[in-house]
Nucleic acid binder design. Structure first.
Lengths: 225, 225
DNA sequence: CGTCGTCTTGATCTTTCTCAACCTGTGTGG
DNA sequence: CCACACAGGTTGAGAAAGATCAAGACGACG
């Protein structure tokens, strides 16, 4: 599978926010590192939104209660290195989503007050934050539902996108939720694509074998074979 | 139906951006009014992103090509008074979405360069823009797909949300797209709810009659009647 | 080696998509 | 002023896709 690693931010001198803070020139960065293991919960929907987070390394899922039963929440986005989490802290009192690490992550954390102060004190700060927010939202394509192609089409699109963004390794249940289908349906779609040799699947990995054919499937063209 | 009108911005002195620009104190606002009739296209996905727009009055839909056939685009969000459109102009070269006025609208327009200059020259400008962007994204709930409740449930949720945000009057086809279903399915769901006296539907309007019962439906509880 | 969580597979049934015909309000031209 | 055409919306019958429920396989881990 072709794989381009998502931007991974290690030192603060190569981090968008660190640069904006002028860390290389001795500037103080209000954001402090916080490593978390896979599975950790970073914040919970509804709790007071006091901190903004920046993903330095790893992947984080955002899920929101769907309003039905109590435990009924829907994972609707994945955020990777370079994006901000919990920016709602800047405009409201509580978090809208629950953020969970899907891999081991390193996030940088700053309180709302610190962020506010930082934006006032450094001209580039506001711009850096704005860019992170806008980029994150540009990145997540609107979730697709069944009226926009059947399961196989959506899976094919996902695999093609993923090939260039390193989404590999997400649990199947998460991927299924992102694609608006059940894990069973995802599994069947993968199996069907695998049977046609367009991809190779193991329990943990998916490998794209035939990009062109996959693009046809994603486009809804039915190969007559 | 309970209806709270979306914030409507008439004079620049009551507009978030106008305030940030200090219009009341004689400040120059880089944003210039542009009225457009319902149905007008404000910008098209893929074309060079040179301008950022601010919705002063009215409603605008955003749609994105789904990657399948050529004319195959999916309306995935509605933006109302007080939100910014086309902020991708700040971070990329082309628009991601196509923006179309669903009602008569008044939008304020500024070129990317003007916005950049404005943000550098006025401290409050960046903050105002950031808030508009974040608020807009907080407002749009992730689209639901069939695995998150059947058509009736999703329609019920929508009606309840809409009751407090003035989404009334959108064409059925648009609403259907936002709910991830076909117009036919939406129509049937509305008819079914109307048959049970939870709502009253006419060709142009939908009125909620029984909020509690509707909440039950939205929550997936099946009334045994 | 056995247990657990996650994923896969299978059979069945519900939902919604599809395609078609039919309304109904609006605007047009005679 | 009325007939007419048109777009958007509704309704119906049938087919296909995915949800559901249940059981089994696989890999991780103690």
């Amino acid at each position: 599978m072709v794989r381009r690693l998502a931007e991974s931010v290690n030192g603060c001198t190569s981090c968008r926010l660190g640069i904006a803070a002028g860390v290389a020139a001795g500037g103080r960065c209000p954001w402090v590192d916080m490593p978390r293991p896979a599975g950790a919960c970073l914040y919970v929907a509804g709790e007071p939104a006091e901190r903004v987070l920046f993903v330095k390394r790893g992947a984080v899922t955002l899920s929101r209660e769907s309003g039905r039963g109590r435990d009924d929440e829907v994972t609707w986005a994945v955020r990777r290195s370079g994006s901000l989490l919990g920016v709602e802290a800047l405009v409201r009192d509580s978090y809208l989503d629950t953020a969970r690490a899907v891999t081991d992550v390193v996030v940088c954390v700053a309180s709302r007050a610190d962020v506010d102060a930082w934006m006032r004190s450094r001209e580039q700060a506001g711009r850096a934050i704005l860019e992170c927010v806008v980029l994150a939202h540009c990145a997540d394509a609107p979730r697709r539902s069944s009226s926009e192609g059947n399961a196989e089409e959506r899976v094919a699109s996902w695999l093609l996108e993923q090939a260039s963004d390193g989404s590999a390794g997400l649990p199947r249940t998460v991927v299924a939720a992102l694609l608006g289908m059940l894990p069973e349906t995802l599994s069947r779609a993968l199996a069907s694509l695998a049977a046609r040799r367009l991809i190779a699947v193991s329990r943990k990995h998916v490998e794209v074998l035939d990009v062109e054919a996959l693009e046809q499937v994603a486009a809804g063209e039915r190969p007559k074979a």
